[in-house]
Write a protein that binds this DNA or RNA. Structure first.
Lengths: 347, 347
DNA sequence: GCTTGGCACTCTGGGCTTCAGAGTGCTAAT
DNA sequence: ATTAGCACTCTGAAGCCCAGAGTGCCAAGC
């Protein structure tokens, strides 16, 4: 692709992103400052169509970018967007509001992202298995049921009702809890599990008995089977988009947004196999779920102390203001990484 | 309103509920078994219109029920619906799946309600202040922050990060925790709060000091300020309804569903000032929020040991299959009351 | 006196045509 | 290689027509 073609593709996409209407040669000519006549522009546009970057909704309509067109745009054509200071200020202000818990923080982040981008924001809660165990509490609910509560260094809490393999007295449970706190303190969830496993072959009979009991009880809390919580905000922004005026087009998208499980897989798939330090972009047909083939997703993983532990993203039409969204997603992901790392720092 | 008018209004609404199309005199005549000619039916329909129970979308169209029409219908005309045994069985089966925690239970209930009604289900989590304190845990996160965890008899967990008014050692915090568990065990949240207050005038200086500290730390956990969690399911069912083919009509509804806070107020408003033992129905304009004036809400409070502690409901178009929805909502609310009461029973 | 068949009237919505507007592709001239 | 000119094409809004469905009213009938 030569310079001229790039310029024109860029002009087409920039225009289309704001107008949502097929872009004609005259408009492009004006946009590039009349350095070419509409007729010449037409020739180039015809080339671009052959190359698959744009298409015509019908003969004698202007051109509309294809998914490949957008791909090329985000990879090399788009202008970088730097959030203006006023916006930065607004973000900081938003975060000033009383945020003490992880949950508040997730909530504020998704709200902020939705408001600023005017698309739909998705914020995944941190994967707990990179966090470290701070405390294990066992609260007996009845003679055969006990509530297991796991507190991590981030202040995250995970809980599960476990059925005891046998009746236990309050004292025995206390003993078990002491044993657990003793052994598991500051371990990650994965490490905790394997450590308990190793105790099963222990010399100490008491340890062995306690460990087998513990494994049974902690089974579910230690595993990552349950779908992670996901914060969603700005769902109704979808309706602002002219391409979603038709109910049948919104429907599949909403079906995905309605289900936390699918939302989780979606965003995980998006940031998978990509540089963890970068914002990743999945355009329309690049997405794995058929239901969101008409959408683009801009997502970024966030980290706790260097280790990726969750992701944050935005979903909107393929005709998305990519540069702006990318910079905002990056900003929020960064903020998340910072604050969570700080939270887990222990100070 | 005489018998004949009732019969005809009933016929109109029953037909309209399934077809979503204005009902003409011929259709009604057929529906009531041709005991009256279409012409006579027309006369009655004209009366009903004057009385405000039905209206014509335009001259020479059939009749459509008004909100008052529906109100009359649910109050006295509608046939009772009894869920068939197969359905009952299906519900039980659904609840068989491993449900150990309150959260699973809420999730299953909302999913079930959405699937069975084909509308959107809303399930409020229990109000904690009727539950009783089972355990208070304090986990120091740093020298000035401590994670407060409150466990209730239902196995519900509430947590909050509290900032300590002064630096405290681990031992001191343990002492405080012991004090709290000692004093607050089996108290309701409200009672706990007032009890701590009373300690402030205590003779015992140690008690007084601890209590003032505790009050500060427990402030947020004990108060009900945070919006309760709400489970939502079957959002995309809205699109099945022909009256919501237009995006502009779905939009306001979705705006409400997107925001937990508004959802909470909505459902609370619905069950408020009504017999706690009954399913309540809010039809269209009877709703407090403008955004859901095109919807009806069928909701029912559920109880833990006789005390109302939350609500469950369904939101859909005013043209709703009321009798069916009412019986299903009642059924689920009942199930919730049962299971939660059992959970809190302490056995 | 209620009920009903008959009839004229009305409104909607789909189908058809028309037409301006926007945009293209091609060709010939520069 | 670029571009002005021109014929061609497609959309979408506007206007029109007409069948269909339904009403309201009137006068005849039980």
């Amino acid at each position: 692709m030569n310079e001229r073609q790039k310029d024109i593709l860029q002009a087409i996409i920039n225009t289309y992103i704001t107008t949502a209407e097929a872009v004609g040669s005259r408009t492009v000519a004006k946009k590039i400052g009349y350095i070419l006549s509409p007729a010449s522009v037409r020739n180039v546009m015809s080339d671009l169509e052959e190359m698959g970057y744009v298409r015509q909704p019908h003969t004698s309509a202007g051109r509309v970018p294809t998914d490949t067109g957008y791909r090329c745009y985000v990879d090399s054509l788009m202008d970088a967007y730097e959030p203006d200071p006023e916006e930065q200020h607004r973000i900081e202000q938003f975060y000033q509001a009383k945020i003490k818990q992880i949950e508040d923080f997730m909530g504020v982040s998704s709200r902020l992202l939705a408001i600023l981008t005017r698309y739909t924001a998705i914020v995944q809660t941190p994967k707990m298995d990179t966090e470290r165990i701070k405390r294990v509490e066992l609260v007996p609910l009845s003679s055969e049921k006990v509530l297991v509560i796991l507190v991590t260094n981030v202040g995250d809490v995970k809980k599960n009702v476990a059925v005891l393999p046998m009746e236990m007295t309050g004292l025995e449970i206390e003993q078990l809890a002491r044993f657990l706190n003793d052994k598991l303190d500051t371990l990650s969830l994965a490490d905790a599990r394997s450590l308990l496993g190793s105790f099963l072959d222990s010399e100490d009979v008491l340890d062995e008995r306690l460990a087998s009991l513990a494994l049974e009880i902690l089974e579910e809390v230690l595993s990552e089977e349950k779908p992670r919580d996901v914060y969603l905000d700005g769902m109704e922004n979808i309706f602002d988009q002219p391409e979603f005026r038709n109910v049948d087009l919104v429907r599949p998208v909403l079906r995905v947004l309605d289900e936390k499980v699918r939302l989780n897989t979606l965003i995980e798939w998006c940031v998978a196999e990509s540089d963890p330090a970068e914002v990743c972009i999945r355009i329309g047909s690049e997405n794995p779920l058929d239901d969101v083939r008409s959408c683009s997703i801009v997502a970024s993983p966030y980290r706790i102390g260097g280790r990726t532990t969750g992701a944050v993203g935005v979903i909107g039409p393929t005709r998305m203001h990519y540069s702006r969204v990318i910079s905002l997603v990056a900003l929020i992901a960064d903020k998340l990484s910072h604050v969570l790392t700080e939270m887990s720092g222990g100070e």
